[in-house]
Amino acid sequence: MTYLGKILYGIKTLWTGMKVTGGYFFPNITRKKYVITRQYPDEPAVVFPRFKGEVVMWHNENNEHRCTGCQACEIACPNGSIEIIWKREVDPETGKKKKMIDQHIYHLSMCTMCSLCIQACPTNAIMWSTNFHNATYDRGLLTKVLNKPGSKLMAGVEE
């Protein structure tokens, strides 16, 4: 390539690049045509139903859950994020002593969102919630008790 040819070729390639950025810039000034910013607190975040935000335990309207306290999730968890404290209590219906959960403790701070606990659960007691507003000032707040106070096992789950 000749000396002048090189210079012209260089200017041409530079102009090709400038056309690309300019092609986005000028429509953006007037109409914000290509702007992809989602201004989060003003515009809601798009969260898909399968999003793995945190593990929650499902309760029905009578404050009943499906967790039998079998500890399958605790064993499946690779990080020790789940601890189940269980107790033996007298079942008011049958009158026999029975193993029940006292507290289903979930350390969100240690969870890696691998879904193994949810796969392992035989009664589908725990599930993913799409909530992602989990930031706190205190790490202790990330340790959660999943079963609500006063809740009990839903009838018919153990069969």
Binding site: N28, K32, V35, I36, T37
Partner: peptide, 10 residues
């Protein structure tokens, strides 16, 4: 601002 519009931002 200009950078924002070039980069598809605000």
């Amino acid at each position: 601002r200009v950078a924002g519009y070039f980069q598809l931002r605000l």
